[in-house]
Write a protein that binds this DNA or RNA. Structure first.
Lengths: 163, 163
DNA sequence: GAAGATTGACCAATCAATCTTT
DNA sequence: AAAGATTGATTGGTCAATCTTC
């Protein structure tokens, strides 16, 4: 009788846990999440501080300029949104600032007259080149110096599964 | 002669690379950094969206409330800053909102009259409990479902080295 | 003078609505 | 109606300055 009850109870507990397993994260998953947020914020803050200390604009500017240089041709705002994971209105206003700073130009888009093309200017290209050494040094200081080569490879591989 | 030149060149190249190694990040380090930013932004956006969809406040509120409940007693703003990696003025205004929402209370601090103590209210405690199931499900959906247990453990360990 | 915290002014992000073209 | 993009209004974050207490 006692055994019977015990079996029943274990069965219920087991079912409960099985259901829970698919609905709630493990402790390791929660820890990975909190570390992701904390490490991300800490390193981002440090890198942004290095850029600012060198009198350079924020990372968001670099990201857009790099996107344009990589494409080697004018790019649609919608493509920038997709690759940088930014909201449409966010990109619109970021581009406003880059235009005012003379780093990019807005061109009409012939194939779709709703849209436009964003072109990298000479100044934009020059800024990109001035920023990279500082940015690169910041990455080295705040990431490179803290992770082994194997750590970096593993981290990149695992984080990629979240994307 | 040709060999001699070659040796010299290699030596110079090697020195150059050795110096560079300590100043610039490897490709893997740069990739780890970009993935960290991208994965962090993507998952954070998704989790925040889940909270909002459930009619709940943003994660920052949860972080503060959780900090207070963990301490089991009123906490100094300076301690919140340290554990959440937030700037002082940022915490000040976040607490303003929590006070207005009736989730925390500001109490005078007897041991240091410059400071204050932040106490969790009943409503704050209740909100914490209402948020956790939604938050937990979001972590499971956006992290747990995408990483194996081993991945999560490795990720947590590696990211911890950045903190 | 340094530390804990707040405040006013400014900049950036977000929401909802809008406009044009597809 | 849906997609690309912008805009006005509000909210949140940041900078510099300030205030009080240590």
């Amino acid at each position: 009788m006692k055994l019977h009850v015990s079996v029943k109870f274990n069965a219920i507990a087991y079912i409960g846990e099985t259901l829970a397993m698919s609905e709630v994260p493990s402790e390791a998953h929660v820890l990975a999440w909190t570390r992701l947020m904390k490490a991300g914020r800490l390193v981002l803050t440090a890198v942004e501080a290095d850029l600012k200390a060198a009198g350079l604009p924020p990372l968001g500017w670099y990201d857009v300029l790099l996107e344009l240089r990589r494409a080697q041709r004018p790019v649609r705002p919608v493509d920038i949104e997709a690759s940088l994971l930014l909201a449409q209105h966010n990109v619109s206003r970021l581009l406003d600032r880059l235009v005012v700073a003379g780093l990019v130009e807005r061109l009409p888009c012939d194939t779709d007259r709703r849209g436009q093309l964003i072109a990298l200017s000479e100044d934009g290209s020059a800024l990109l080149q001035r920023m990279w050494p500082v940015y690169r040094a910041a990455i080295q200081r705040h990431v490179g110096a803290k992770l082994s080569e194997a750590d970096a490879q593993q981290a990149a591989a695992i984080l990629d599964r979240l994307i």
